[in-house]
Design a protein around this nucleic acid. Structure first.
Lengths: 367, 367
DNA sequence: CCGTGTTTCCAAAACGTTTGCGCAAACCCC
DNA sequence: GGGGTTTGCGCAAACGTTTTGGAAACACGG
């Protein structure tokens, strides 16, 4: 009655088998065909509903599919030219909270569109990046999301040689051949500057990222430009460059505290990690935020609202950035759109307690 | 001299092509064979160094490979029975900082061993999980890392039916057929309890996770047991169950503050997110940590050292957990080891400023 | 009984790769 | 120069799937 039941361990040689047991491999279309007593062609047509099949044949095939739990091999399909429906993502570190939120957005949109995402951490190491790239190409991914702090634009030119690989970049400079999704860093910097000035600060500094870090660079430029546009024009009193991490922020702050001369009234940090690191160093030094110094961050990672004090920062729609990037990439993959353009999502100022009022405050002051 | 140069746009029909241009697809072994003037067999043997080939033939083949930038299709290889060298990972949310660190460890080890990792966020939604699973099976992944807050053990039984899919679980209860990597939660809870008692606290409470959350449950049990083992035995003065997130911790703390009666002297939080959320709520209420109440967390996420005050917590070797899980999985995939066993990595107490001294403190006290 | 559709299904090729088998040429030794 | 061995390489099948081109079987009008 059930001739297809396979009882493992029944055969005398059961415990001699060491390699993959051929009896337990994933069922193929051939197995279905054999059980249903039809050809593989018919199975395929039933499964994909791509040509009419007689009702009773269809029933037999469906039964066989169900009883075997048959699922077509995407490998075989891809070999025939179908897209693999797999995307790659190169990212500096999936640990970084901001990156993590973007990745989450990318993955979410991929899932909605039926794609899988291969995650690759490069640690901004060129060898790792190239190794990952080679693997991804061998696996014939349909497209690639790049979110690395990459200063080398030739990288994207090299990559766009692979004409069957679609690309999208996150938070880079504008590129000729590759669509870019980013936040409007210049605007973000300007918003930060205007807010600090509005709060009555005149002596403001910045904790910046390393030179050549595009994201951080544009934020800083927007900040400096907006300061210069004030009446009277302002310039930075302090500018420190450090790694964009908690420890980097703490180091920068400790260094600033060890210097001679008065502190700035307010500090613009190029991301929230730096800001939180700076808060930590200030607290350790016995200084109070925002009474002794005001701190403003960038990104609005989830933790920002839970710092002590809660961090005033520029909110980036990180998940939106991720979703938009995935969307742009999938659009290209499916040939619905040309590869071009820059999508700059506007940041938004989120006022919390880490910024107070400066000496030159118009009205307001400490409530 | 260079007959293989392909100048796009040279042909009259160049701009009529809309679909994928056959001239720009990834080069195949056939292309190499044609250019080198040999059979595909020979190309394969040269590429894989699997049979001696005459020196000059070899040179021609290598030239062709280099000029085309040929990379063998993993799809085709996998179709022939080679492993796909792709693993899947089901995770509740890659956003969670602790999960993010584990994922990073998994990815790192995968990379070292030549595997790729497909990341799947389930949000602990059963439909999403099943959808992801179906996709991963169709893509014929070699193995799967599961790190979900899954209370349904039948899930793993169902999964281990797929005999060609290797499994590893992170932070679940012990399983029969599936190796498990986790931290020694009971020990962690006990360490927390003993430390609080040592510091002279008698009235201690806990901010726990939801019922049925295995990780959180064992931590709590270890904590309660160790308290009961003290002389005289102690019991929890407060036990609140909440979502294991920043907002959950803040909510729980606010709720506790709104209750009648004295606060506990110290609170054991089931993870650092809850602890940091609680710190936030305490600060908002004008209470000081550790003067008014002591807080101890669990996980030691990177942020824990940068809180205000820095968080005393139980350090989990999160990246190690990830690496070990990947290692165990790959071992199975490559058939070097049976599928069994539990690896429990011991947590370690990290003393920072969020825990002070209780009324019953033996010596010490505020330095 | 013969054309003419229509329905229902199958054979085979193709995708890119590896590999067992075998064939031919070159070499060696007497 | 004849047998045997070695060297060098190609043919073809197989992996799982889709798809094109038919081929049988059947119905129907004449």
């Amino acid at each position: 009655m059930t001739p297809e039941v396979n009882r493992p361990g029944g055969g005398p040689s059961a415990d001699l088998r060491l390699g993959p047991d051929p009896a337990v491999r994933a069922p193929t279309i051939k197995d279905v065909a054999r059980i249903a007593g039809v050809s593989v062609t018919t199975v395929s047509h039933v499964f994909n509903e791509t040509r009419p099949v007689a009702a009773d044949t269809q029933a037999r095939v469906r039964d066989a599919i169900a009883s075997l739990g048959y699922q077509p091999s995407r490998l075989a399909r891809a070999l025939r030219g179908e897209p693999t429906r797999t995307l790659g993502m190169l990212v500096t570190s999936s640990n970084n909270p901001f990156f993590a939120e973007v990745i989450h957005g990318v993955e979410e949109r991929c899932f909605e569109r039926g794609y899988s995402l291969i995650l690759c951490n490069t640690g901004d190491d060129r060898d790792r990046l190239n190794a990952h790239l080679a693997t991804l190409l061998q696996k014939r991914i349909d497209g690639l999301v790049v979110m690395t702090t990459n200063d080398d634009l030739r990288f994207f030119d090299d990559l766009s040689q692979h004409r069957d690989l679609r690309l999208v970049a996150i938070d880079t400079e504008d590129l000729d051949r590759v669509p870019v999704v980013k936040d409007d860093s210049g605007l973000g910097g300007a918003l930060a500057a205007r807010f600090l000035v509005e709060r009555g600060f005149r002596r403001v500094g910045a904790l910046a990222g390393p030179l050549g870090h595009p994201r951080a660079q544009y934020r800083l430029e927007g900040f400096i430009e907006a300061l210069a546009g004030e009446e009277p024009p302002l310039t930075l009193t302090h500018l420190l460059r450090e790694e964009m991490s908690l420890e980097g922020g703490a180091r920068a702050m400790r260094h600033l505290l060890s210097q001679e001369g008065p502190l700035p009234e307010a500090l613009f940090c190029m991301n929230d990690l730096i800001a939180i690191g700076a808060l930590h160093a200030l607290h350790q030094a016995g200084l109070k935020v925002p009474q002794d110094i005001s701190i403003i961050g960038y990104d609005d990672i989830e933790m920002a609202a839970y710092c002590q004090p809660p961090l005033t920062t520029l909110h980036q729609p990180s998940a939106d950035i991720g979703r938009s990037a995935a969307e742009a990439l999938i659009r290209q993959v499916e040939g619905r759109e040309a590869a071009a353009g820059v999508l700059a999502l506007p940041p938004r100022l989120v006022k919390r307690a880490s910024v107070g009022w400066g000496a030159a405050a118009a009205g307001g002051g400490w409530a």
